[in-house]
């Protein structure tokens, strides 16, 4: 202890205190202040940048969800349109079919009626012609047959029979 006290130098103590306090104030003004400020500023900058990036990402997400929504709507609209179109097509087709059926039926009816008319006309005509023919035949036959009396009677009888059968 005595050695320590003997070695203790007041001058050294004085200089150390003075120089050190001076150094603290000098460094505070020219070094630590600016350094710590700069570091703080940088850290704040990094923090802000990170926050901003986060915000941007959030916005991106929002935009994306918006896009999705729009897309979904568009798709729904398209589906609705397609459905309408399909329905319209189907009704049109069925209507057309029905109309065609009706028309066809009508035409068939008309054709049938026409055929029936023609048929009856043809039959009438044929009857007329056959009448004429049979009259002429009968004339000839009568011309030939009437020479024979027995035959004439026979024929008349036969003809009468035939007529009733008709």
């Amino acid at each position: 202890m005595e050695k320590l006290l003997n070695e203790f130098s007041v001058g050294l103590f004085f200089w150390q205190v003075v120089l050190f306090i001076g150094l603290i104030f000098l460094l505070r003004k020219f070094a630590w202040g600016p350094i710590l400020d700069a570091i703080n500023e940088r850290e704040e900058g990094i923090k802000n940048a990170l926050a901003e990036a986060d915000k941007a990402r959030q916005e991106m997400l929002n935009i994306k969800s918006d896009n999705d929504k729009v897309l979904k709507e568009a798709r729904a609209e398209r589906d609705a349109l397609l459905k309408d179109a399909r329905e319209m097509k189907e009704t049109m087709i069925s209507e057309a079919k029905e109309e065609a059926q009706v028309q066809a039926n009508k035409m068939i009816e008309q054709a049938k009626a026409a055929i029936a008319n023609e048929k009856s006309a043809a039959i009438t005509e044929m009857k007329n012609q056959m009448g004429d023919l049979s009259v002429s035949i009968a004339e000839k036959v009568v011309k030939g047959e009437l020479s024979d009396k027995k035959k004439q009677l026979q024929l008349i009888e036969q003809l009468l029979n035939e007529v009733t059968l008709n």
Binding site: Q16, L19, F20, G22, L23, A31, W32, P34, I35
Partner: peptide, 24 residues
């Protein structure tokens, strides 16, 4: 020792003031 303290103080001042300047 005092001389050494002065040299150290000067060196520290130059070093850290230089660092502070390099930031700006």
């Amino acid at each position: 020792t005092v001389a050494m303290i002065m040299i150290t103080a000067l060196l520290m001042f130059l070093l850290f003031a230089g660092l502070a300047k390099s930031y700006t």
